[in-house]
């Protein structure tokens, strides 16, 4: 640093290459939303449309999302594509738990979102009973355009949201942030440590 012509002597003009400055947080968010790797979690009809969205015509690669990871440990996003049965729900939760933070969930289609037309003994009436959902994509099944809209909505959310996500004491990244008055939990008379809930 103390070398002649270095940053300390001449400031930015002393550099012989270009660089950008920015907040680290923005940079991380930029990197995150530009390459969200979805886990392959196809269940039913919606999975076909999800694959169609990854196909040549709709081309999810435009959003840096064509790499469907077979292992949940390499994935950032779980697209719950299809109806979730009572038998599948524990499996789904296990896969979600295997994904590393930060992670997001898109509930694709009405069956995943609310049970859809199958209001019966076999289906979980909404996957948000099992995992926290970030974006709901409506439709039966949602076309690839709807899925892409959901994905872009998620991108906006990643871009504008908080950097780290916490979902419960010791869960997720294992971080617990105590909130004081004047911060998010303030004014609600909460004495326990308040965890930042997701927006």
């Amino acid at each position: 640093m103390a070398k002649e012509g270095g940053l300390l002597d001449e400031g930015l003009e002393g550099l012989n290459h270009n660089f950008l400055t920015g907040q680290l947080e923005n940079l991380i968010k930029w990197a995150r939303y530009r390459s969200v790797f979805p886990a392959t979690f196809g269940l039913a009809c919606c999975a076909i449309e999800m694959m169609a969205a990854g196909g040549p015509h709709y081309d999810l690669a435009r959003f840096g999302m064509e790499v469907f990871r077979a292992s949940p440990r390499q994935a950032d996003l779980m697209i719950v594509a299809g109806r979730v049965s009572q038998k599948m729900a524990p499996v789904l939760r296990q896969i979600y738990d295997q994904m590393v933070e930060p992670k997001w969930v898109i509930s694709m289609g009405v069956c995943a979102s609310s049970g859809g037309m199958f209001n019966n003994y076999a289906l979980v009436q909404g996957v948000d009973q099992v995992v926290p959902v970030d974006v709901y994509a409506p439709g039966c099944p949602p076309g690839p355009e709807t899925l892409m809209h959901a994905i872009m909505t998620l991108h906006e959310k990643i871009k504008d949201g908080e950097l780290t996500k916490r979902r419960g004491a010791g869960k997720g990244a294992g971080l617990v942030i105590e909130q004081r008055d004047g911060q998010t939990g303030g004014g609600r008379g909460l004495e326990q440590p308040v965890l930042l809930s997701r927006s």
Partner: peptide
């Protein structure tokens, strides 16, 4: 098997014949 059991035959008995195709079309989605 059974990880995608949707109870469609049961649902089919709840729906009228007119609504039936809506239900069965979701079985073999290919």
């Amino acid at each position: 098997i059974g990880y995608l059991h949707t109870g469609m035959e049961w649902t089919g008995e709840e729906l009228t014949y007119l609504q039936g195709p809506t239900n069965v079309t979701r079985m073999d989605y290919a």
